[in-house]
Simulated scan of single mutants.
Amino acid sequence: MSKSAILTKQQLENFALQGLCYADDHIGDTFHIKDVSDRLGISYSYFYHNFAMYMGEPFWHYVKRHRLETAAGLLRHSGHSIGDVGDLCGYATTAAFSKAFKQHFKESPKDFRRILELPNEKRTIQIIETITTAAGTDIFGNFFQYERGEKVHLPDTILYYSFLSRGQNPIGEMIAKMNQYYNTFSKILQHFELPQGKIITGTLDAVPVTDYERISIYAGISIPATAEHVHQQMENNYFYLMKKRIPGGVYLKLPVPMDFATAGIPMYNFINHSCKEGIFKMSGNHFFMSLNGSNSCEIYIPLLKKQY
């Protein structure tokens, strides 16, 4: 990047968000900050200082925190062994993972799995309930039953997304911005005439672990990885969108007749209860909502392979 280039605040923020996106999409990979700055076409020093300024923490601090919080979510809701969780989150050995995890959470991975309610969990749920409370929420909870779900196989996909929130009130920002993004993404899907494409929303973070004010919520288009011609056009015409790989496999698909905001708390309670009771275990933290309109969505929960 030329030293004489004058970048807008939005462009500078986008560099930081692209770094956050890269860290999430390579959570189990070995990489260096220079890999990210080279990808963005800026200097190591420029990216390092820019990320810290916009995100409020150094890049590598974020990478470590994100990996360990993701690991905590996997320990809570997946059926993976402690060693596999560490490997999925970028740690070369179980010993290295266990040491880093205990330093961060003050609990070993084994002891962490026994905690019934996490420190952030109650607070996060209370905040979200305050924002999204609607008449009939208890009734809606009746739709979140395992027996209503259907096991479906989804292909590997690429998600093109925008962040709905990166601030003090992620759920509030999500509600305020969703209609705008839904309409934009609907037009893109209609243009490509891609029946397998989905407009989805979710979070990069482990909801019961990450501080509410740091949760990153996205909305985007999920497109099968095999649709190469579509990906080329997305790269050319929508280069400003973030990218994330979502692994395929068997998912529990659960249709619910409600809007995304109302569905959030009963969805989490359903996942949490089902995992605690052994009804199912997840293969990863990448559950998401597929939006079908203002008052209808589908929940997709990735299931552990040995369960189907």
Rank of each mutant, 00 (worst) to 15 (best):
Q103H: 10
K106D: 15
A95K: 12
I128D: 15
E147R: 07
T184K: 10
E121V: 11
A95C: 11
E117Q: 15
K106G: 12
Y146R: 10
M174H: 07
G86F: 00
L118H: 14
L164V: 03
C89Y: 02
A135G: 15
S98E: 10
G90R: 07
L74Q: 06
L189F: 05
E150D: 15
L74D: 03
T124H: 07
A96W: 06
E121L: 10
L154S: 09
T132V: 13
L154M: 11
F143E: 15
R114A: 12
T93G: 09
I125K: 08
T124R: 04
S81L: 03
F105E: 06
H77I: 04
T184E: 06
A135K: 13
A176P: 03
L159R: 02
K106T: 12
K102P: 09
L74C: 02
S186T: 00
V152Q: 08
F105N: 06
Q190M: 04
Y181C: 00
D87N: 14
A72F: 02
V152F: 06
F112W: 06
K110F: 12
G167K: 02
R166C: 06
N120V: 08
A176I: 00
T130M: 09
A71T: 03
L118S: 14
D138C: 10
T70Q: 04
N179F: 06
A134E: 15
M178P: 07
L164M: 02
E150M: 13
K110C: 13
E173K: 03
A92F: 11
Q103T: 11
G172H: 02
F101W: 00
G73L: 02
R114S: 14
A95M: 12
L116Q: 15
G73Q: 01
T93L: 09
G90V: 07
A71D: 03
F112D: 08
I125Y: 10
S108A: 05
T133R: 14
N142C: 14
L118Y: 15
E173R: 01
K106V: 10
P119S: 09
E129P: 10
A134T: 14
K106A: 13
T137R: 11
T70I: 00
P155D: 03
Y161D: 01
G90Y: 05
